[in-house]
């Protein structure tokens, strides 16, 4: 199972309804091809760090997707549609399952460290008892 993050920065001149329609368009495309939308995050209007197409704001939406490797072929198609859509200022797709896997694998040895901490404390207690 692969997971992706799809970020869309759309024209700020769109109304809320238009924005929902725009995201729905992509959500439907993804779902119709067997992709699953796990989560959706909307930041609303946000100031851009630099103007894009003479616009200083953008509407940010993030879609978290999940799909089988086979259905991942829909990603280039979604990207093409985003590129052709002139209401979309920017988009970004990032595959995240490998990063998540690596992070969870690496976290295991790190978790062992807190368990080791009590050991020297016990040693100190023993030392104190000898003194008293």
């Amino acid at each position: 199972m692969r997971t992706y993050e799809l970020a869309i920065v759309a024209d700020p001149r769109l109304s809320d309804e238009e924005m929902i329609a725009l995201t729905d368009e992509y959500k439907q495309l993804i779902q119709s091809r067997g992709g699953e939308i796990v989560r959706e995050e909307s930041w609303g209007k946000r100031k851009l760090a630099y103007p894009i197409r003479k616009v200083n704001e953008g509407r940010y939406v993030f879609l978290y997707l999940q799909m089988e490797p086979k259905t991942a072929a829909l990603i280039p198609e979604v990207e093409l549609r985003l590129k052709q859509n002139d209401r979309v200022l920017r988009y970004l797709t990032v595959r995240t399952d490998l990063d998540i896997k690596r992070a969870t694998n690496r976290a295991k040895p790190g978790q062992a460290i807190p368990g080791q901490e009590p050991a020297p404390v016990e040693g100190e207690v023993v030392a104190n008892e000898e003194v008293s």
Binding site: A49, Y50, G58, L92
Partner: peptide, 11 residues
């Protein structure tokens, strides 16, 4: 670099 592309950070 990803954040820059989305204009979250400046170039």
């Amino acid at each position: 670099k990803r954040a820059r592309h989305l204009a979250l950070l400046p170039f």
